[in-house]
């Protein structure tokens, strides 16, 4: 399978404070990559550079499906191919769940409203909230809102889905329903990059796990490599801390 995302020497700093110190990473089509690491290690920044929610240093290069990620006209094309699910859902509170899901295809892909609606209803059914279509986001539980957010991202038929700690803002009893949706999704062959603290999910679903610390990729490999035979002391101490908390 071909490379979908290619990241070369990704550097990013806030003023003089360097957050990413030259990251190289290729993600293949259909691959599910989980990014783990301590708070402040740059995980969010890394995936937010992929759709240019964060700008990055001029020497760095990211391409998505062959399109260079940079400000300008091509950026809209990249963003149409890259879906994102946020920790805080970021649903549009002033429109119904259905409209949340169908609006982007209409506005960005010029989809016919009737088709967009049919697809939105279909997606809402897939994430298990078909009955909530006419409600407003504020009327739903956190877990339901995050599933709407996943449906909203899927409605654009993206080539890749980025998740930034999608379950961290949820009450514990709702984490499972969102992870279940994500597991199902991983099984359908969508490319996924998931920043997560859910080690069980990473172990079970990831093709590859990346451990970041201090703005660098310290170690990457299969879940078995990372969780059972980590090579770096920093990986080991991080895993000890999160697995025995």
């Amino acid at each position: 399978m071909g490379t979908l995302i290619s990241i070369r020497d990704l550097r990013k700093s806030y003023g003089t404070f360097a957050v990413l110190h030259g990251i190289d990473l290729d993600i293949a089509e259909g691959e599910v990559v989980c990014v783990i690491g301590p708070s402040g290690s740059g995980k969010s920044t890394l995936i937010r550079c992929i759709n240019h929610l964060e700008g990055f240093s001029a020497e760095s290069a990211i391409t998505v499906d062959g399109i260079k990620v940079q400000p300008g006209a091509a950026l809209a094309r990249v963003r149409a191919e890259v879906g994102m699910v946020f920790q805080s859902f970021n649903l549009f509170p002033h429109m119904t769940v259905l409209r949340n899901v169908m609006l982007a295809p209409i506005r960005v892909r010029n989809a016919a409203p009737a088709e967009a609606e049919a697809k939105a209803r279909d997606l809402l059914a897939r994430v298990g909230i078909a009955e909530q279509a006419e409600k407003y986001p504020g009327q739903l539980s956190g877990g339901q809102q995050q599933r709407v957010a996943i449906a909203r991202a899927l409605a654009m038929e993206p080539k890749v889905l980025l998740f930034d700690e999608p379950t961290s803002a949820l009450d514990p009893e709702m984490v499972g329903e969102v992870l279940d949706v994500m597991k199902k999704l991983a099984g359908t062959g969508v490319t996924m990059v998931v920043v997560t603290h859910e080690m069980g999910f990473a172990r079970q679903v990831a093709d590859r796990v990346i451990f970041m610390d201090g703005g660098r990729i310290v170690e990457s490999g299969t879940p078995a490599d990372i969780f059972d035979t980590p090579r770096h002391e920093r990986t080991r101490s991080f895993l000890r801390a999160v697995l025995n908390h």
């Binding site: 759709n51 929610l53 963003r79 149409a80 879906g83 994102m84 946020f86 970021n90 960005v108 991202a153």
Partner: peptide, 27 residues
């Protein structure tokens, strides 16, 4: 309007014009 609304619109590929007219100004 929370910054996350701008980010969600940007991530979906909305143009500046539609971000304003559909997402930000109504709120």
């Amino acid at each position: 309007v929370p910054h996350g609304q701008f980010e969600a619109a940007a991530a979906l590929g909305f143009s500046n014009r539609h971000t304003m007219s559909d997402i930000i100004l109504p709120q």
